[in-house]
Design a binder for these strands. Structure first.
Length: 422
DNA sequence: GCGATCAGCT
DNA sequence: CACAGCTGATCGC
């Protein structure tokens, strides 16, 4: 698509329509209360969060997009001045409340931008039907994919299973206080599940309670600590040190619903597209394999601390299922900043058909390697500066500009390398 | 001075 | 080892 038409989760000047997939801060960086560029399209739930997240935001700029139905929009081509007709649809992404994928259609072709998404077998039924119908009408030319866990080493259970594991841990500690780490948006379903299973309210901090009410949870959550032994606390206030402090007052365990460890499955080189582990869904695996996966999803890494792999991103098998369903002609990963970036074409390029030259399949991982190598190299080059900065309290003096210039240079080196290998 | 951005931490 | 998001320092207007 021509540039200067639309932006998705990007907020620089110059587009005629802006799309927001969900209200996480890494997708809203650049948005603020005084933003006034152009209409902003998002789901109803995301729209409802704007007044509290961006005080002063001009709400008349918001356009609520219904789920699973087409909307049309006329834009103006910056180059030719002619009218560009754009059709788009929001599809539930099951990442966090209000999260959607956007499917775009026009003379330019058909694009699917997933944003962050979790393709849980049970969660995504309606989204799957919507997607299948839309793709049958016209195939996807380019899939922009949440490739966070696009690597066979990333295997973990559905959120339903993970939520039961959390409930099991709590039930096994009947006289303990429980704290569960959460962020400002997401993992509500986990808390609701725990609440239902244990028939207990969940404490949240005041701002989080306001968010819960906006999301339509009216009775389950409370800010009164006397009503419950289970508290959801901000993840940044959650640490072993905190837990040790709490345990001097009252026996307390902490549950971190994400994080280590991974179930690492050995990579089989000849297994890329037709191998059993790729096509196996949870329900087809043996009971013992499921047990193994679940056991690995819980990790007690301290007397008071458990981690459970409860993820709002799709695991590798789910990404595979998704790509096989969409069958895009081509695709690109959205997550490129990660040091373990893997281009989805590396594992799934062949699903996209014959129009992917083999060197493309191999180039991207090399690029990532190059990227990593350059980073490491340039960091080691500034070790002295960093040691100095650590030893002393950083101050605004002549060293600052020196460090800054070094930082700049480092970025330029990276860019030069990327340009070179791209 | 203030918002934006970065580094560090978890 | 990922991500998300905080804090505090620094940048730049």
């Amino acid at each position: 698509m021509e540039s200067g038409l639309i932006s998705v989760d990007r907020w620089r000047n110059g587009s005629q329509a802006y799309f927001l997939t969900h209200m996480h801060s890494d997708h809203t960086r650049g948005l603020s209360g005084d933003w006034s560029q152009a209409p902003l399209y998002c789901s109803r739930t995301t729209a409802s969060l704007f007044p509290s997240r961006f005080p002063g935001f001009d709400l008349s700029l918001l356009r609520v997009v219904p789920l699973s139905s087409w909307t049309s929009l006329s834009l103006r081509s910056p180059s030719s001045g002619s009218t560009v007709r754009l059709h788009f649809m929001a599809i539930d992404a099951h990442h966090c409340p209000g999260s959607v994928m956007f499917l775009f259609r026009g003379d330019f072709g058909c694009f699917l931008y997933t944003g962050d998404f979790r393709w849980d077998a049970d969660a995504a039924d309606e989204a799957r039907n919507t997607l299948v119908d839309a793709i049958n009408e016209s195939p996807v030319d380019i899939l922009y994919l949440d490739n966070t866990y696009c690597n066979p080493i990333y295997s973990f259970p559905s959120r339903q299973v993970a939520a039961n594991l959390v409930a099991d841990i709590i039930a096994a500690h009947p006289s303990h206080d429980i704290i569960i780490a959460v962020d400002s948006l997401g993992k509500e379903d986990l808390l609701v599940h725990v609440s239902r299973i244990l028939n207990i309210k969940i404490w949240v901090w005041p701002e989080r309670l306001r968010t819960m009410h906006l999301l339509g949870f009216q009775d389950i959550f409370t800010t009164d600590t006397s009503l419950t032994r289970v508290r959801a606390v901000p993840r940044y206030s959650f640490s072993i040190r905190t837990l040790e402090g709490l345990n001097t007052m009252c026996p307390t365990i902490g549950i971190m619903p994400s994080g280590l460890p991974w179930v690492k499955r050995p990579f089989k080189g000849d297994d890329k597209l037709s191998g059993s582990f790729l096509t196996a869904s949870m329900k087809n695996e043996t009971i013992s394999a499921q047990k193994e996966l679940q056991a690995a999803a819980v990790h007690k890494f301290h007397d008071y601390m458990y981690s459970v792999h409860y993820s709002d991103h799709s695991c590798y098998e789910e990404i595979a299922e998704f790509i096989k369903l969409v069958r895009p002609k081509s695709m690109k990963g959205i997550v490129v900043s990660s040091s373990s970036y893997v281009d989805p074409l590396y594992y799934f390029g062949r699903i996209c058909g014959a129009n992917q030259p083999p060197q493309v399949l191999l180039m991207r991982p090399d690029t990532a390697e190059e990227f990593r190598a350059v980073r490491i190299k340039s960091y080691s080059g500034s070790d002295k500066t960093r040691a100095l900065a650590k030893g002393k309290k950083r101050k605004r003096d002549s060293h600052s500009s020196l460090k800054r210039n070094k930082k700049r240079a480092r970025i330029q080196v990276k860019c030069a390398k990327i340009v070179e290998v791209d």
